[in-house]
Simulated assay, not measured.
Amino acid sequence: MTRPPLPPFDEASARTKVQLAEDGWNSRTPEKVALAYTPDSQWRNRAEIFQGRGRIVEFLTRKWARELEYRLIKELWAHSGNRIAVRFAYEYRDAGGKWFRAYGNENWEFDADGLMRRRIASINDLPIDEADRLFHWPLGPRPADHLGLTDLGL
């Protein structure tokens, strides 16, 4: 199975890969998202370290069960060969109605078929008031006319 665009990445293909990842994560469908990763993909997400698509599905299922109304924006930071670095922010609320904005950076490494074989994520959560939310599109992919991180001042 291949997952274009394929490495080595240039500016345009790296941006496309980042947008595809953002759209996938905004679907909040763990099984769909996991298909972008190699069967033995290695992950570090905050303090969790694990490997494999099955574990990715388990992780994302837990994540989106507690991070409600999740909306994500990713932005290309850098790219070289088969690696891409992104920065991102997402907003969500917990079951008690408290809102958060999470900020983070990810380092991605891809195999020759364009599947991500390694994902390293560092993330910080900031409690926000509902009035301070910036991501207001309907659940699902971010509309093309919605501002990105840089334009939002994030």
Rank of each mutant, 00 (worst) to 15 (best):
M1W: 00
T2I: 15
P5Q: 07
P5G: 10
P5R: 10
E11Y: 06
E11N: 11
R15S: 11
E22N: 13
E22D: 06
D23K: 05
W25A: 08
W25E: 08
N26R: 06
N26V: 04
N26Q: 09
P30I: 04
E31S: 13
K32N: 01
K32G: 04
A34F: 02
A34Q: 03
A34G: 04
L35E: 10
L35G: 04
A36H: 03
A36E: 05
Y37S: 00
Y37W: 09
P39K: 01
P39F: 03
D40F: 01
S41C: 03
S41P: 02
S41D: 01
Q42W: 03
Q42Y: 02
Q42E: 07
Q42N: 00
R44C: 02
R44S: 05
R44Q: 10
R46V: 05
A47E: 03
E48Q: 05
E48T: 02
F50N: 02
I56V: 03
I56P: 00
F59H: 12
L60W: 08
T61Q: 08
R62C: 04
K63D: 07
R66E: 11
R66N: 06
E69F: 02
Y70I: 03
R71A: 09
L72I: 07
I73R: 13
K74C: 14
K74I: 08
K74N: 14
E75Q: 15
A78M: 08
N82F: 05
R83A: 12
R83H: 14
I84T: 11
A85R: 15
A85K: 15
F88S: 11
F88M: 12
Y90Q: 11
E91M: 04
R93Q: 15
R93M: 12
R93E: 12
D94H: 13
D94N: 15
D94A: 09
A95Y: 00
A95D: 10
K98E: 05
W99V: 09
F100T: 08
R101K: 12
A102I: 04
A102R: 12
G104T: 11
G104W: 09
E106W: 06
E109I: 15
E109W: 01
F110N: 04
D111I: 03
A112D: 06
A112F: 00
D113E: 08
L115S: 11
R117W: 01
R117C: 03
R118G: 01
I120W: 13
I120R: 12
A121P: 10
N124P: 00
P127G: 07
I128E: 07
D129E: 15
E130R: 13
E130V: 13
R133A: 06
G140P: 00
R142I: 05
P143W: 10
H146L: 08
H146V: 15
G148N: 14
L149K: 06
T150R: 15
